[in-house]
């Protein structure tokens, strides 16, 4: 058989469901008939005020609540992070794929030069593990310097410690990458405050109302020509109103 015959030896059309099917992965022929939404794709609502699944230790929860409420405090512009549900949000995130580092490549070793090379801190530990260690270390730091739990310090003093963590002038110990832990908490507090309320934070869409983001709207064609105008659009979320 020459090369050309070999190319066409199968004929133009393959029979579906060839032999040895049992040994195959998912071979798809034809367009899938079922066009309904895959239940796996639907987001799951976090029930605010429900049972904590990861932040079960009272001291840890008090610490992170205190931190979050300095990162995003209550004022005349809106609720604090915890009032907006950001601790519920964090607990749900830490209980799920994010907390367990499901997306991360976690093979060892963690190289000495990795942080410098990547220009950002590298971890094998999961976010759940980093919170568990970080919150304990932060409270221990407050006990050592101020003789009280972080959550019981005055707001000014809490801010001083957080600023030190942010700047890298305070170390919570060798086991903790203090600056990176601050950034992790700041990122998660913002995520809770500005993500869809379906994830437990941004209660009453307070975060979106603060800046004027209209949420999960899916069609702006009626507004696109009104460039430069203040539109005052009420936000909507993925949670149905009723």
């Amino acid at each position: 058989m020459n090369r050309r015959e070999a190319l066409f030896s199968l004929g133009a059309i393959a029979a579906t469901g060839a032999a040895a099917d049992g040994a195959r992965a998912r071979e798809m022929h034809g367009y899938p008939a079922d066009m309904t939404v895959d239940p796996e794709m639907l987001p799951r609502s976090v029930i605010p005020g429900g049972q904590m699944r990861v932040l079960t230790d009272d001291a840890d929860r008090r610490t992170v609540t205190a931190v979050f409420d300095r990162l995003i405090p209550a004022d005349d512009l809106g609720p604090s992070a915890s009032e907006a549900g950001c601790v519920d949000f964090l607990d749900a995130q830490l209980a799920g794929r994010f907390g367990e580092g499901a997306a991360l490549y976690r093979e060892k070793p963690l190289q000495q030069n990795a942080d410098d090379l990547m220009q950002t801190a590298q971890f094998i530990a999961t976010p759940r593990e980093r919170y568990a260690a970080g919150l304990k270390a932060l409270d221990a730091y407050a006990q050592e310097t101020d003789g009280a739990a972080f959550a019981d310090l005055q707001p000014n003093r809490q801010d001083e410690i957080l600023k030190g963590m942010e700047d890298g002038t305070i170390s919570l110990g060798e086991e903790i990458h203090t600056k990176a832990f601050f950034e992790l908490m700041l990122q998660n507090a913002r995520e809770g405050y500005f993500s869809d309320p379906i994830y437990g934070g941004n209660r009453d869409m307070a975060g979106w109302k603060l800046i004027g983001f209209p949420g999960a709207r899916y069609d702006f064609r009626l507004y696109a020509d009104r460039t430069g105008e203040k539109l005052d659009l009420e936000p909507v979320s993925l949670i149905p109103k009723d």
Binding site: D34, V37, D38, E191, S195, A216, Y218
Partner: peptide, 23 residues
């Protein structure tokens, strides 16, 4: 396999945390 109606319909798609941040 992924497709529009089964995976990213309008009821699923506008979600920054899940797609933009958690990727």
């Amino acid at each position: 396999w992924m497709d529009t109606s089964t995976h990213t319909p309008p009821a699923v798609d506008p979600d920054e945390l899940r797609w933009g941040i958690r990727k």
